[in-house]
Amino acid sequence: MITAERKPMEELTEYVKNHDRILLVGCNECVTVCAAGGRKEVALLASALQMDAMQKGKTLDITEITLERQCDPEYIEELTPHIDQVDAVMSMACGCGVQEIARRFKNTPVFPAVNTKFMGASERQGVWAERCQGCGSCLLGLTGGICPIARCAKRLLNGPCGGSSNGKCEINPDLDCAWQLIWDRLKALGMEKQYEEIIPAKNWVSGRGGGPRKIIREDLAE
C-alpha cells in the first residue's frame, strides 16, 4: 500500500487560516489501512480543526466526505455537488488523490493533510515499513524476494557494504541490513551461488530517471 502520516496541526491550521468553509476529503484505500486518512481520521481532524478555529475566535465550517478512491476520476466526481459550497479542499489521501482533486476542480485550492511516505507493508499492528520504490524493472527474482533498492540505505545492488553489523544497518540499529536478509534467504533456499552473480548497473530509465511515467494499456485504453 501507499503509506502516509498526518501532517502536524500547525501546518494544517496555517493552510486553512484564511478559509471559512472547507471540504475535508478522506480516502477509503491505502490511507484508511495505514490509519492516516480514512473516515475515522477525517472525523478526528475535522474536530481538531474546529477546536483550533474556536480557540482563535473564528468559525470554520467543515464538510466531511470519504471517497472510495481519490486516485480515480470516477469517484472524484462525487465531490462536485459540494465544491461550490466551500472555499477550499483539504485532502487526506496520498499525493495522487490531492492531485486528482486539483486537476478536476480548477478554481478551488486543495491542501494536503498528510505526508505521503512510501510503498510498504504492515510489519505488525501500527508499524509499516518500506518495501518498494517502484523502479519499474523488478529485481526481486535475483535477490531472494527482498528489495535492496527499497531496503538498503545505499540501495546497493551488490551489497552488503562494510557497515553491516549483527544483521543491522550502520545508520540505524533498528533497521535490518537488507543484504543480511537477502543472504539469509538465499542460503535458506540453497541459492548461495546466486549471491556471486554480479547485478550490473541498473537502467534507471524504467524508474524516475526516465521522467514522469505513464502506463498505456492499448487493450484497455479508450
Binding site: 540505505a153 545505499k154 546497493l156 545492488l157 548497473a201 534507471w204
Partner: peptide, 28 residues
C-alpha cells in the same frame, strides 16, 4: 567505494546518489 552514508556527515539532508555501487564502478 560506495562511501559512508550522509547520515554520518555534516550534510545529513543530502540525497545519496548510488546510481552505481562500488562493484558496478569497478566494472565501469
Amino acid at each position: 567505494l560506495s562511501g559512508d552514508h550522509p547520515h554520518f556527515g555534516d550534510h545529513p539532508e543530502a540525497i545519496n546518489v548510488h546510481d552505481l555501487d562500488s562493484i558496478q564502478l569497478i566494472q565501469m
